[in-house]
Design a protein around this nucleic acid. Structure first.
Length: 159
DNA sequence: GCCAACGTTGGC
DNA sequence: GCCAACGTTGGC
């Protein structure tokens, strides 16, 4: 099983939207970056776990935990001319973009970005790498376990 | 709104 | 294949 971090702008789709979705499950659509696509298409498997990250908002940070409920399939929005994520170069025979199905495991306390940055155990986290913009990044097992522990501590708690 | 950093596009 | 111009991301 692998671990991931998936970014979403809460104004577009938040952890609460996922919590309110039928079966607390939703299609992760609109990824239009090749590296992020490759992670989804080639490496994500059903049963993998992911941190749900809120980006481009007042308090960016990890907001919860999700599970990959269904591995990659063609992202339907690329075929829809009325959709903002329509891609005229994509065809049904040769889809360019992919989605996965994501299911909420737990909403957690929000772990803000500066709190992640402050932990030297997370110094090598892909999310925190200089200039990183990838909306989907791998998380190591050690990082995953460390952040799970962090989530159980009160906000800003020391040690 | 600013700006750093990265990705994509397209002329050559 | 190079690289300048442009677009996007995302924190601040």
């Amino acid at each position: 099983m692998r671990y991931w971090l998936m970014k979403s702008e809460p104004a577009e789709f938040s952890i609460d939207d996922l919590a309110c979705a039928p079966r607390r499950s939703a299609a992760w659509t609109g990824v239009r970056n090749y590296q992020a696509r490759n992670f989804m298409r080639d490496d994500m498997r059903s049963g993998d776990r992911a941190f749900f990250y809120h980006s481009s908002c007042a308090v960016p940070g990890i907001a919860g935990i999700a599970e990959i409920a269904k591995s990659a399939y063609p992202d339907p929005t690329q075929f829809d001319p009325g959709d903002e994520y329509f891609d005229p170069k994509a065809t049904r025979d040769r889809p360019r973009w992919f989605s996965v199905e994501v299911k909420l495991v737990a909403k957690t306390r929000l772990v803000p970005l500066p709190e992640l940055r402050a932990r030297r155990q997370l110094a090598d986290m892909r999310l925190l790498a200089r200039g990183n913009r990838l909306s989907i990044t791998p998380v190591t097992a050690a990082e995953w376990k460390f952040i799970l522990r962090l989530m159980k501590k009160p906000a800003g708690g020391g040690s």
